[in-house]
Design a protein around this nucleic acid. Structure first.
Lengths: 156, 156
DNA sequence: TTGATAATGGAAACCATTTTCAATAAGGAT
DNA sequence: ATCCTTATTGAAAATGGTTTCCATTATCAA
């Protein structure tokens, strides 16, 4: 390993050790897959990819790792209504683009959108402040989703 | 049955027959419970209440009815992260007060709030219009939730 | 009242996720 | 580099909310 270059271990290295977690082969692999892959992967999706690269890693570890990552705040866990959780990296080496979701209630297709995000987030921040004070609630996160029918499902 | 008084059957009567659904004992009972009860009931919660009033009605029917109600739009189905779905009437005889949720990620407590709702909804409506056009998506609903720690959980 | 068929209950199936437990590996201390 | 403590792991079994099956029953338009 190249000394003097702590980036050689991946940008997330500190996020683990800083929280007292150990950085294992499996965890690195899962993070690598999450950071390179398309979004909204299920645990099973991730497991398939992980397993093709390293068959020694089991589904249980995938679940456990996703749980850890979720607690650390490195991944968001979503419920899009199809009975399985979906995971998505909350930030990348350069920070991820904040976005929200459009969900088709018929085919479960998910569309990411970043339009109007700024306005939304600004309003949410204001709201958060107000709510935090009124309800003595320490808000750490928010979720916005729109439901409806995608063009394919609406036209039949 | 009192003729000439269609309200005697409950304000939701038309919502069923109008969609081709039959109005059964179980469905009426479940709706009655939903309309009188506190919010955020799980299927199991509802089943217990239903069963105490009419032991002939099974859990399967509760699930099926909630699914129908959800499709009709009479109930909202929520995921608050505790592994079971929660249901809540979307409207009452006089219309329900629109609200959103604050969810404690530690104890899963849910707080309804109506503050800032008007501003939120106004922004959401604008956003909906824009998104509908851009993505050719027929939006029917939205979800906003804030996550964090309630005062009890934050102070320990 | 009748008939077509939607709705039902109970049991079994389903399936994503969690738990168990003995074996293994990470990483600070030596 | 080697030890040692203890977090982490995989495989299999358990869990538990939800759905499916199927024979029976109930709804409601005619």
């Amino acid at each position: 390993m190249a000394r003097g270059n702590c980036y050689g271990q991946g940008w997330w290295h500190g996020r683990f050790t800083g929280c007292g977690y150990r950085l294992t082969i499996g965890r690195e692999l899962i993070l690598d897959i999450l950071s390179k892959s398309d979004k909204h992967l299920s645990a099973e999706d991730i497991y398939v990819k992980v397993h093709s690269r390293n068959p020694a890693i089991g589904l249980t570890t995938v679940y456990r790792t996703l749980d850890v990552l979720s607690n650390i705040g490195l991944v968001y866990k979503y419920d899009f209504g199809d009975g399985r959780a979906r995971y998505e990296l909350s930030e990348g080496p350069k920070g991820a683009k904040h976005h929200h979701h459009l969900i088709c209630t018929k085919c479960n297709r998910v569309i990411d959108y970043t339009d109007f995000i700024d306005e939304e987030v600004e309003l949410l921040n204001q709201t958060e402040k107000g709510l935090s004070k009124k309800y003595d609630f320490k808000i750490t996160n928010h979720l916005i989703q729109f439901y409806g029918l995608c063009n394919a499902c609406a036209s039949k």
